[in-house]
């Protein structure tokens, strides 16, 4: 950044290019796949990708974005997804009202976040290792709760309209999960860019010691972020388990690496190098549409994964090649 400012004439254009790197990449992916696969750019397919793949990934990735913004990584987002789903499904199966079950699910996420907060803010453990520990403990908890990893299905009699509403409901033709993504991304986006607290979070993320010397309550900020991250991830767990009327152990870990990828790609490709909501959402969308596009052009599941990896690597190469020119 600093060197970019020192040589304004040439580098600003490169910086501006970088700013549009991620949207450009997404546009490129969309263009190529819509040319190759006729069914790609149809309303049905795009909605399908958004609902089935992007929505839950986006919620978890938003939780991760908060952690990344504060300078950490939350490896326990998957754990919060799982524990949220477990508490929710257990409560529903026990015949509790769905609203109360949602509350229990959120409580599990808050608990996960609180545990992380205790480790990170109170004991000063680095977020990566703290949440790695939480991840392992969460794995044990799930094994103990499900006798080694057996899924918990909601008994047929307990599948109430309220449960179906959470799992499959929609408003104005848009599924509930997408509304939640909209709500959360607007909220977190505004929080990070427009509020004092958001600036403080980013300050802690960029340089925690400097933030501490400036008198910011670093520990409180880190604790709040951990709790928020766990709670948001648990929301995804509730939606996921309501959608399939079951809790599947360790299912949440599937979201972990994608959310790390999306949040960090969004961060790396932003002009400022800070975690940001649009970047994360574009990253999640990029992953979702890449996988879907490779499927539609007839690649089998195995090659899809290779393709996605190569495309991510290419995105990163382009991004950091641009950064080199800027920096």
């Amino acid at each position: 950044m600093s060197r970019a400012q020192a040589r304004p004439s040439r580098s600003i254009s490169a910086a501006e290019l970088l700013r549009f790197g991620l949207p450009a990449m997404l546009a490129l992916v969309l263009a190529v796949f819509s040319a190759l696969a006729p069914g790609f750019l149809t309303v049905a397919n795009v909605t399908g990708v958004l609902v089935n793949s992007v929505a839950l990934n986006a919620i978890v990735a938003l939780a991760m974005t908060l952690a990344v913004a504060s300078g950490g990584t939350d490896l326990s987002v998957g754990t919060a997804v799982d524990l949220g789903g477990l508490a929710f499904i257990a409560a529903v199966s026990a015949g509790q009202p769905v609203a109360l079950a949602v509350f229990f699910g959120l409580l599990a996420g808050i608990g996960t976040g609180l545990f992380n907060a205790l480790l990170i803010a109170r004991l000063g453990v680095t977020p990566f290792l703290a949440t790695l520990g939480t991840l392992f403990i969460g794995h044990s908890l799930q094994q103990l709760a499900t006798d080694g990893g057996n899924p918990v299905y909601v008994p047929a009699g307990r599948i109430t309209p309220a449960l179906a509403l959470i799992g499959h409901g929609s408003c104005l033709g848009i599924p509930l999960s997408l509304w939640l993504v909209l709500l959360l991304s607007t909220g977190i986006g505004l929080l990070l860019t427009r509020t004092r607290f958001g600036r403080e979070v980013l300050a802690v993320g960029i340089q925690a010691p400097a933030a501490l010397y400036s008198g910011l309550p670093v520990r409180r900020i880190l604790a709040l972020i951990s709790i928020a991250s766990g709670t948001i991830a648990a929301l995804a767990g509730i939606l996921l388990s309501a959608h399939v009327n079951a809790y599947v152990p360790y299912a949440g870990n599937a979201y972990l690496l994608d959310s790390i990828g999306a949040a960090f790609i969004g961060t790396a490709l932003s002009r400022t190098g800070r975690a940001n909501v649009p970047g994360t959402l574009l990253g999640v969308a990029l992953f979702g549409f890449m996988t879907n596009g490779l499927l539609l052009i007839g690649w089998n599941f195995y090659w899809q994964q290779v393709g996605t990896g190569v495309l991510i690597l290419l995105t990163l190469i382009l991004a950091f090649a641009g950064r080199e020119r800027v920096g």
Partner: peptide, 10 residues
């Protein structure tokens, strides 16, 4: 972190 994550996928 990002480079090896992508390579892991591949």
């Amino acid at each position: 972190l990002l480079a090896t994550l992508a390579v892991m996928n591949i």
